[in-house]
Design a protein around this nucleic acid. Structure first.
Lengths: 342, 342
DNA sequence: CTGTTAGCGCATTCAC
DNA sequence: GTGAATGCGCTAACAG
């Protein structure tokens, strides 16, 4: 590979001038600039980003750390991040931890070693150790989860509100024994969504029954198992609020396998939409999150944080909406209007 | 951030010795090594990967270039790559081009500049310019598509065979006017899958009718539009073979919207599975690819290519299978056995 | 406006 | 087995 010195020699200028042309920083005599550009073309010169990063002691890379690349929630979020990152001149490195703390640690170490310009982390699992990142003064934005006690920029949705909407909707549809499958104890989103469920029951003067609540792992299999357990209860629940998209899928699979008709014998609402929620029969009612904007907002905060490392930390909360489809309405399911499909 | 010099000073050794301890290359006196390790701990020393990369003029990063991060096919593939990469000590950078040639070019440039150790590219769109990569002697493996005329390691599936299986199955189920939605003209997978469809018709002595074939963009919307067009034909097709997963989704959405019952009035088989294909009612019959292994195999080839840049290029072809579910069988749909679900 | 110079942090010669 | 010295390729002072 040609270096900046090769170009300089060929164009009969100094390496500094080549650098100036490449980066367009200072003004360069047009004639010289032309010679440089020609030399670059002839040598097929490509600036070595590694050397530049070392010299500048910063990179143009963001790391986005997510826990499940197979979950459409995260891929949509990544898209939002990526689009803004590109605009701002950053490339995005995706780190998929698969809910594996060891992988997460490895990635965070790599991220530090590689001197990334910033990190956006969207963990659904237990708390990551962001201490080392913040200690190294790496700009960080947390998405999807509140980290108490730390001054970090954060983007959230109103989980409690969404969960409450979902549960209230099931009550309004006439369901009375509503089960809840939420995430692991201690996981922030799991708590908030469970909280919204409880709140809705309280609002309606319904008793809160511990046995109707299950904690699973935010994955499909976990939803399946939790549903299996719930179906053993007597009397059986007549509705389900599932606290994330993949667990909803698992639960519905279980219902299909057991031959339990939805929504006739089991109303279902899931938290977080799925790209194909309306293709499943019956179409799934979900609490939708503005996933793409979640990513965009995180990217925006990261850009601002990089520009001013000392500004006060911000928390942005985005709204959720209830998307009523068929799985939660006992009669005339096809009459439901779906604004997103218009 | 502490540097190797800080550690050396604190441990009262030379930077070279610290480097030796960090990399475990040569033998170091245990006493010195201990002092070094303690100093590293106390200073929370983290090797600067950028500097190391510059010095060694190679990195420990792979780039995986895909065209749609929202497509489960690619995410599964990435998982396969990632798992092997981790084992081999590489980190994976995901580059999502969204079928946008400009984005792809930007990423390939970045990839060159960042001196990545290797590239795995899985494009579904038109030909990428890999020339510059191979010219720079960057190890490259192509997945999912054949690049004729170039000596590049490649991992494929037997597209033609899978498409033929799918079409033959529809014929066997009694459908006679079978439409095909494939990808853009000139896209390798699109051609091969169309070829399999044609071959199956020929095998069965059925005429090939141009009007039954549509070319779309491998995305959901394209499938929807193509299906809309096909439904205007008279006589109407009675079955569909769609050449990728997302177009299948789009086509089925269209059928739902038009109120056309599947499989009674329209048999459907899609190429490439979806994680939730069995949740859709009726459950979708698909041609499944070993997506994860596709990624693993690509990673394996890349590892071997890096180890020996001059070995002959290999092409590996993996098998596809027909997964019969409900959307392609007119009677007794629930009797179908699905081995993957056992 | 341009060239000379130094050094980012590290790994690797080469002497010792 | 260890340390001193060098340079990976580039950018940013600084001097001219």
């Amino acid at each position: 590979m040609a270096t900046i010195y090769d170009v300089a020699r060929k164009a009969e200028v100094s390496p500094a001038t080549v650098s100036r042309v490449v980066n367009g920083h200072t003004n360069v005599d047009p004639a010289l600039a032309d010679r440089v550009r020609r030399a670059m073309r002839e040598l097929d010169y490509r600036p070595n980003a590694v050397a530049r990063n070392l010299r500048r002691s910063r990179t143009t890379l963001w790391a986005v750390v997510i826990s499940d690349i197979g979950n459409p929630f995260f891929t949509a979020l990544v898209r939002g991040v990526e689009d803004l990152a590109q605009q701002a001149g950053y490339s995005v490195v995706l780190c998929n931890t698969d809910e594996d703390p060891a992988k997460e640690t490895r990635y965070l170490n790599a991220v530090l070693a590689e001197q990334v310009a910033g990190v956006i982390i969207a963990p659904s699992g237990p708390a990551a150790d962001l201490g080392q990142l913040t200690a190294a003064r790496v700009p960080v934005v947390v998405v999807d989860r509140q980290l108490h006690g730390s001054r970090i920029d954060t983007v959230l949705v109103d989980n409690e509100h969404g969960a409450r909407l979902a549960t209230t909707h099931l009550l309004d549809s006439g369901y009375r024994r509503i089960a809840c499958i939420t995430g692991r104890r201690g996981v922030w989103t799991a708590c908030r969504r469970l909280g919204g469920y409880q709140r809705a029951l309280a609002d309606a003067g319904q008793p809160y029954q511990e046995e109707l609540v299950r904690h699973a792992d935010f994955r499909s299999d976990g939803g399946y198992r939790a549903m299996t357990e719930l179906l053993r209860l007597r009397p059986r629940p007549d509705a389900l609020f599932a606290a994330n998209n993949l667990m909803t899928v698992g639960a519905v699979e279980c219902l299909v396998d057991q031959g339990i008709p939805v929504p006739a014998e089991m109303g279902v609402v899931g938290f977080d939409d799925l790209p194909w929620a309306h293709l499943v029969r019956p179409a799934l009612t979900t609490v939708t999150q503005p996933t793409y904007q979640l990513g965009e907002t995180a990217a925006q905060l990261l850009i601002e944080r990089i520009a001013d490392p000392d500004r006060a930390a911000t928390t942005v909360t985005l709204p959720t909406k209830l998307q009523v489809r068929e799985s939660s309405v006992r009669r005339r399911p096809s009459a439901v209007v779906d604004p997103d499909e218009a």
